[in-house]
Write a protein that binds this DNA or RNA. Sequence first.
DNA 1: GTCTATATAGGGATAGAC
DNA 2: GTCTATCCCTATATAGAC
Lengths: 211, 211
Amino acid sequence: MITSHTGTSGAEGKLPVATGSAEHLSTRKRILDIALELFTTQGYDKTSMREIAARMGFSKPAIYYHFASKEDILMALHLRLHEFGRNAVSTVQRDEASPRVWMALLDRLIDQILELHDLFVLQERNQAALAHLHRERHISEQDLLEDWFSLALANQEIPLDDRVRMTCAFKAVMGVMDLVDDVFSEVPSAALAALLREAVNDLMAPSLDPK
Amino acid sequence: MITSHTGTSGAEGKLPVATGSAEHLSTRKRILDIALELFTTQGYDKTSMREIAARMGFSKPAIYYHFASKEDILMALHLRLHEFGRNAVSTVQRDEASPRVWMALLDRLIDQILELHDLFVLQERNQAALAHLHRERHISEQDLLEDWFSLALANQEIPLDDRVRMTCAFKAVMGVMDLVDDVFSEVPSAALAALLREAVNDLMAPSLDPK
DNA sequence: GTCTATATAGGGATAGAC
DNA sequence: GTCTATCCCTATATAGAC
C-alpha cells in the first residue's frame, strides 16, 4: 500500500525522503505513487489524468508540467522495474542459464521482488498497456525483465524437461508475488519467502541432480 | 490465426472450420474470433470497434447488430471461460481443497486449458479490463475461475506451507500455458502436458506425503 | 508550479435507409 | 444484416494567465 504521505505539502516542502529510491519526494514522485496505486487497482486504461490530478489535490493540466504524457507516467514506473531487472540479471548471460544458475537467480529474486512487489503487480495487471508502450518506443529487448526470462527459457540447448521446470519455478515465484495481498495478506513476507524458496527447491531438484 | 476472409458478404462462405467449438460459424462467432485475436495481441482497451469491423470487412455500426456494446464482446469471450471454469471445478467444494484434491484438479485442468489456451492468454493479458467488467456487472463471485482459486488458496484451515505449494502449482500451470506460444512453440502439447504434470507432481509431493 | 479555458481527436453508440 | 451519417462524450494535451 502506498501511504501517499499526508502530503499537506503545500507550499514548500523539503520533505524528508522515506524511500531508498533515487528520486526525492517531489511532486513528481507523489504523482508516480498515486498513479501506481490507481493503475494497479483500476488498470492503466481505466485511469484518467483527471483522476490522478484529483487525488493530488490539483487540476489536470498541472500534471503535464511534470510529465509530458500519460504514457510517460507509466514509462517512469516501468523504468523503476527496468533498472531493477537489469540489476538482478546482470551477473548472468542469458545463454548460460542452466538450472543451477536459474535457481540462484530465483533465490535472489524472491527477496528483491517482495520489496518491490507493488511494481510487479502493476506489471502483471497491465501487460497489454505495457506491451504497447514497449512496441511504440523501441526499448532494447534485452533490458526488459520479462523478455529476458522468456528468451532464456526458450533456449533449446537446455533439455526440455529442465526448461519446463525452470518456467514453472519462475511463474510460481511471480505468481505468489501477485497474490501476496489477496491470498497471503496475513503472512509475514519473510515466512512467505522461506516457504516459497522451499517449494521452488523441490520443484527444481530433479533438474539439479546429475542425471 | 483468423484469416479475416475477403469478406464481401460471404453469404455462402464455405470457410473451413478449424475450431471444434459448439457455436456455429455465424458472423457473431467470427466477430468473437477476431476480437479474441485483437484483444490478446493489442489489448482490449487499445482495440477499437472500428478495427474489429475493418477486419470483418464491413463497417463499425454493423457490429452493434450482433453485440450491444464492446464490453459485451469481451463478456461473451469471458463467458466461454466461465462455463469451462464452472465445469472444471464443479466436483470440488472450495473448502475441501486439500493438497490431494488440488493435485487432481490441476491434473484435469492441464489438458483442458491447453485446448482453450487462447482464452487463457486473453485473461492473463487483460486482467484489468476483465476485473472492471467483473465489478460492473455483478457476476456471482463463485462462478469465476480465478476467484474460486484465490479463495480456495486463502483457506486458513490448510497449513501455510501447503497453501504456498498449491499456489505455486496453480501459477506454474497457468504460467506455462501463457508461454505455450512464445517459449514452447516447437513443443507438441501432449509432451508439454506430460512434463508439466511431472513438475507439478514433484512440487506438490511434500504436501501429499503424510507428515 | 499550478490554474482556467480550450483545442482536438477518437471512441462508443444510435437512427434510420437499404 | 449491413451501410451512411451523426451524436455525444471523454480523454489527452496545449495555450497562456497568475
